[in-house]
């Protein structure tokens, strides 16, 4: 199988503000988010980064999407270095995270056209893609409604279709079902499986065990910025449920036993 994402010894430390220092009770004013993280995801697979809050999952995905850079180490997406060829990486990926918001003032219809043009799509291509995705996600009826007036679920659907407007080969989703009602969450998970069926490569972060079991081919368990376990879903689970396997790994990492 051809590798599509490779992270090599990624390290990232954040400098904390005075307020964050108090919250984190940090004396050094620094927080190590990633401590030598390495993993590989392969073409046509769904790779899941599993870990508790603050483990470094989102930081890793932000590095892969070129939003932030690693202090050291190197990562490649679709054969492009995230540090040296960020523009090419961004053209290859679709990135969705709760951190990315859409301007409330505009309608889904306007935003789709705007982001389509930023991705260099021709007007005809934008129109065809819009028809396809808006119909699939039921956005047609809300296409001319301002984002501010949409429900949370509908906003998430609009964000999702905009993130994949350019039909990227690699899809990076940070907590894709977070905050969604069950119906919208089902639409998203089904769509991820559909994308996988189309041969797309997907990397997602989550702390929901059932989602990992349902979607992922390979799993990386991150604890404290380090890769605690990595492999296929079955290798990581070791015959247990994902939840039991995770807590065994967590206990081993935290207590050293």
């Amino acid at each position: 199988m051809q590798e599509i994402i490779r992270a090599e010894d990624i390290r990232k430390t954040f400098h904390l503000s005075r307020k964050q220092r108090q919250i984190e009770r940090s004396k050094t004013g620094k927080k190590v988010a990633l401590d030598g993280l390495s993993f590989t995801a392969y073409e046509g697979e769904i790779y899941g980064l599993l870990g508790p809050n603050g483990a470094g999952k989102t930081t890793m995905l932000r590095i892969l999407s070129t939003l932030i850079s690693a202090d050291s180490g190197e990562a490649f997406v679709a054969g492009h270095s995230v540090s040296r060829e960020p523009d090419k990486v961004r053209a290859s990926i679709g990135f969705l995270t709760g951190e990315l918001k859409l301007e409330d003032f505009f309608t889904p219809d306007y935003l789709f056209g705007f982001f389509g043009r930023l991705h260099g799509l021709p007007e005809e291509g934008i129109r065809a893609r819009k028809e396809e995705l808006f119909r699939k996600f039921g956005i047609d009826a809300y296409a001319q409604v301002k984002v501010a007036d949409l429900s949370t679920g509908m906003k998430q659907k609009v964000s999702l279709v905009i993130s994949i407007i350019h039909d990227p080969s690699v899809i990076i989703f940070d907590e894709p079902t977070n905050g969604l009602d069950v119906l919208t969450a089902k639409v998203v998970t089904d769509f991820l499986l559909e994308l996988k069926g189309q041969g797309k490569s997907i990397i997602l972060s989550t702390h929901i065990f059932s989602l990992v079991e349902k979607l992922c081919d390979r799993v990386g368990v991150i604890i404290g910025g380090r890769m605690a376990a990595e492999g296929t879903l079955d290798e990581v689970r070791g015959g247990k449920s994902m939840e039991d396997a995770f807590f065994d790994i967590y206990k081993r990492e935290v207590t050293g036993k």
Partner: peptide, 13 residues
């Protein structure tokens, strides 16, 4: 509002 980050993950320089 977090909307500038959305622009920053597009290929725009």
């Amino acid at each position: 509002r977090g909307t500038i980050a959305t622009l920053m993950v597009t290929p725009v320089k």
